[in-house]
Design a protein around this nucleic acid. Structure first.
Lengths: 227, 227
DNA sequence: AACTGCCCCTAACGCCGTTAGGGGCCCTGG
DNA sequence: CCAGGGCCCCTAACGGCGTTAGGGGCAGTT
């Protein structure tokens, strides 16, 4: 009977191998298409066998959540605090955007995995070094996380929808702009007038804009000589 | 045969009645427990019948999304722009927090429903009035939305998990703090030291902190005499 | 009276998460 | 050498899910 499916069947199944398999299934099928049965098949095993390694799907998603963060990198430790913090947020966004449905997996998961903890630790360290108080540093970390995750969640979901349909990123934005323009002008004058501003496809610029506003606000917390 | 279930069976089924039923099921069972079959039962009908009124579950979720925003209220049009904008964000957060799984339903839904459009229109109006350019106003609206949704998503999900388990909001926070404190100090000195700051249960304060930073950043966009 | 939409039904498809229970395999201790 | 026991996978099944096909009754129109 032919046995080997693709890979790590050799050394027996590890939780780590499961996480990697889940990662591949996520990339291929999206979060909605990620099922126990498919992950099991990915490692060459039947669905029920997964429950030996994992309590339930929720726990598998925790593993997946951490695996998604495994190769996230902190920005170089050079430049002022603002440069470093900006680097953090932009890398985080790019990282999430680069993996299918990553924002949906990450968002609202209660416990950060070890890889994310490592990043948080480093980020807090830099915040302290920049001169923020411990309490402020913690809140800032939370603030930045909420912004980046919220932003990516909104920009990544339409991409997922677009994959379902045939369209690309550009078409989705155009369709959205069209919907705004089609609104009754009497009732929604601003939405109609700003349709292009609201739906413009340059999400990088929109993300950067918000980020700079936040950084401006953070700078005001520091004594003038440390800004 | 006894027929009447509870309500709107009288005038025939409307999409609006469907949305209301979905809202009730959401409140009772949470998003994970919201199924076509349950919504159908809620209106006294079998599951397949829903497909006469709605293309698929996704479309029902769109209706639900709008229904969730139906009774959201804009803050009073008094005070300076900062007061009004703060009111917007705090009301939005409170509104989402007040309905079970609302953040999950709203997050990443591509098309805002009519009720949300009305709020956006009003918010844009006030931004313009405060002196922000059209392009800036659009980006600011997006920024605030991302922050509030991202924040609420992170704070509401543990509540959902807590419902599943037996714990309350407080216990969840304590458990999280315990996890941070239990980390190896050598590797995560900041996380251990700031465990209380990171998991403190006063989410209102944490939300307010981030919000004020953002508002500070926005103020810098205005000419000094309009701040 | 026949027709035509409207609105609901039953039945079924294939998928899902999860559990019960069984059976090989290998390591260990007698 | 053999018995026991953990480890790891299996088959089979449960109830629930979204969705579709096809049918039927009831209204209003022609």
């Amino acid at each position: 009977m032919p046995a080997d499916e693709d890979d790590a069947t050799q050394p027996g199944l590890t939780r780590d191998a499961l996480a990697q398999a889940a990662l591949r299934v996520l990339e291929r099928e999206g979060l909605a298409g990620l099922s126990m049965r498919k992950v099991a098949a990915e490692v060459g095993v039947k669905a029920a066998s997964l429950y030996w390694h994992v309590r339930n799907k929720e726990e598998l998603l925790d593993l997946l959540n951490d695996a998604l963060m495994a190769d996230a990198e902190a920005p170089p430790r050079s430049g002022d605090w603002r440069t470093q913090l900006r680097g953090y947020c932009q890398r985080y966004r790019a990282h999430l955007l680069g993996r299918r449905d990553a924002a949906k997996v990450v968002a609202g998961r209660l416990a950060p995995g070890p890889h994310l903890l490592r990043l948080m630790e480093d980020q807090l360290d830099r915040l302290r070094e920049a001169g923020f108080s411990p309490a402020d540093s913690a809140m800032i970390s939370y603030l930045l996380g909420a912004y980046v995750q919220g932003f990516v969640l909104q920009e990544q979901s339409p991409m997922a929808a677009a994959e379902t349909a045939g369209a690309g990123r550009r078409e989705v934005a155009d369709a959205a702009a069209e919907r705004f323009r089609a609104l009754p002008v009497a009732e929604f004058p601003n939405l109609v007038a700003m349709a292009d501003d609201l739906t413009g496809p340059d999400l990088d610029a929109r993300f950067g804009f918000g980020l700079e506003r936040i950084l401006d606000g953070l700078a005001a917390l520091l004594p003038p000589d440390r800004r």
